[in-house]
Simulated scan of single mutants.
Amino acid sequence: MIRAQLELRIPNMTAYETITAAKKSAIPDDAAMLRAAVELTKDISAARAAIYWPDCFLSAALGYGALAGAVLLRETWLAVVCALVAALALYRALLFIHELTHIHRNALPGFRFAWNVAVGIPMLTPSFMYENVHTLHHARTRYGTAEDPEYLPLALMKPWSLPVFVAVAALAPVALLIRSAVLVPLGAVIPPLRRVVWERFSALSINPGFRRRPPEGEFGRMVFWQELGASTWAITLIASTQFIGWRPLLIALAVFSLTAVLNQLRTLVAHLWENDGEAMTVTAQYLDSVNVPPPGWLAPLWAPVGLRYHALHHLLPSLPYHALGEAHRRLSAHLGAGSTYAGAHYGGMMPLLAKIARSTMGRR
């Protein structure tokens, strides 16, 4: 009966909440949508180096240049403008870590190494903190369950959980600095500490119950060199305060805090967070996720590198970010405004924040 109800309503829905009051895990797969997603995007599935390299590293260069301006300029308003530009540009460069987890290892030779040197290690967020973690979030049987490192049923939690979720992100840069400068070096000589640091503080996850498994093989060797680079850089940053004072480091940490808060807000509206822990179909996962398609012009700033199409990304995880806009246009034209595909489209960050907040209000 539930399946019949869902199949009747899904083709005509315009928003996720119109499906039914049935459990989200009971939503059946829309075979037509899944088939169209694959068939209509075969010719745009290759990652293009001519887009990845300049987009990422010009963003990083702009970010570091603006950060230098925030540190060196004495005019307060100019320094603040530079800080905002730095936060947005470095945010875009940092989010290429998401692409690194999905593109084939041989697709962009040298890109992973260059990204870690230019972005991941300087921002104390090397790629291992997301690799072999984010893919668990896309696993068919893990999404939205207790084994998903990137899922919390935020819409089903208490109202205070949302501001706490965002506020914690402001402390992330300081926590990363302490991790790399203090905890990782200590862990090198104290095995129990090393195990705790790896299990609990070495992944970009939001699920406090997630415990990371020890790295092995080639990935373990990559982790070693990335950890060494991040620790060396973190210690150098702290040592530099003895020669140039604390001001440059504190400004940089403030800029990175703004970046982290922006990313946390994006994370907060990337899903509806309505699953109660049971395994979900691919269609249910899609409808628990969010697209913010054009014409909204702010979305590329707070959800860059294709993340405005986060629901579509859950349909096609390996599709490169630069192809998502075209994939969206093709699927929208093929499936129509009243389709399941349209059920994951929303108008912007503020309506989504309001929707999730309303969901929590009844749980005081």
Rank of each mutant, 00 (worst) to 15 (best):
A4R: 14
L6M: 15
E7D: 10
P11E: 10
N12H: 15
N12L: 15
N12A: 15
Y16V: 03
Y16M: 10
T18L: 11
K23C: 08
S25F: 09
I27Y: 05
D30Y: 04
L34K: 04
A36Y: 09
A36M: 03
A37G: 15
L40G: 00
D43L: 05
A50I: 12
I51T: 10
Y52R: 04
P54W: 04
C56E: 11
F57H: 11
L58K: 10
S59L: 09
A60W: 05
A60V: 13
A61V: 14
A61F: 12
A66V: 12
G69E: 09
G69K: 01
L72S: 14
L73P: 00
R92F: 05
A93P: 01
F96N: 01
F96L: 03
I97N: 03
H98Y: 11
L100P: 09
H102V: 02
F111P: 04
F113P: 03
A114H: 03
A114M: 13
W115F: 10
W115E: 03
V117H: 09
I121Q: 05
L124A: 06
P126G: 11
F128V: 10
E131A: 10
E131W: 02
N132M: 11
V133E: 07
V133H: 05
H134Y: 11
T135D: 15
T135L: 14
D148N: 07
E150V: 11
L156H: 13
S161A: 15
P163Y: 12
A167I: 11
A170K: 01
L171F: 11
P173I: 00
V174N: 07
L176S: 01
L177V: 11
I178Q: 02
I178K: 00
V182E: 04
V182I: 15
L183C: 04
V184G: 02
G187A: 01
I190N: 06
I190W: 12
P191M: 10
I206W: 00
N207W: 08
G209V: 12
F210H: 07
R211K: 15
P214N: 04
P215H: 08
G220S: 15
F224P: 06
W225E: 07
E227K: 08
G229Y: 03
G229C: 10
A230L: 08
S231A: 14
A234E: 01
I235G: 01
T236K: 09
T236F: 11
I238S: 08
F243N: 06
I244A: 14
G245F: 02
W246I: 13
L249A: 10
A252E: 05
A254H: 06
F256I: 15
T259V: 04
L265N: 01
L268D: 02
V269M: 00
H271C: 01
A279V: 15
M280Q: 03
V282R: 13
V282H: 03
V282I: 14
D288H: 07
P293N: 06
P293I: 03
P294I: 07
P295W: 06
G296R: 08
L301Y: 10
L301I: 13
A303H: 02
V305M: 05
G306S: 05
Y309A: 00
A311I: 06
L316Q: 02
Y321G: 00
L331G: 00
L335Q: 04
L335Y: 08
T340N: 07
Y341C: 10
A344N: 02
G348P: 05
M349C: 11
P351N: 09
L353E: 07
A354M: 15
S359N: 15
G362V: 06
R364Q: 13
